[in-house]
């Protein structure tokens, strides 16, 4: 059996195990996270899907004022969604604005 065959065999085993019920048992994650998320993580999982992906304008590396960034996030100008404190808390947004304002341009981002 070559390496490719072995990999396929392993993947098949996982799939079949899942279907037949030999997988891991139930997992629960009941604790709501009260910890503020890191700005880089928020940027990656929200902002970065549009900004730097030819959807929204590039905002990293431009030295945008912090107040401007928080205002944009809460108001959602033009084609941008607005983000509520329940989605990005005030503390998280303050840290995110600092992160965006002080970041260098990101490699791999493209568009306007």
């Amino acid at each position: 059996m070559n390496i490719l065959d072995t990999k396929l065999s392993v993947r098949l085993s996982i799939w079949v195990a899942l279907l037949l019920g030999f997988g891991t048992s139930a997992i629960a994650d009941p604790a709501p996270s009260a910890q503020p998320r890191e700005p880089a993580a928020i940027y990656k999982t929200i902002c970065g899907y549009c900004h730097g992906k030819n959807i929204g304008p590039i905002i990293l590396g431009r030295g945008l004022p912090k107040e401007y960034i928080t205002s944009m996030a809460r108001s959602g100008p033009n084609g941008m969604p607005a983000f509520r404190p329940t989605e990005i808390s005030n503390d998280e947004l303050d840290a995110l604005a600092v992160f965006i304002s002080q970041s260098d341009a990101a490699e791999g981002e493209y568009g306007q």
Binding site: L18, G23, T24, A26, A28, D29, P30, A31, P32
Partner: peptide, 8 residues
């Protein structure tokens, strides 16, 4: 909260 994921 993600209350439960049953893998099986």
């Amino acid at each position: 909260r993600i209350l439960e994921v049953n893998v099986e």
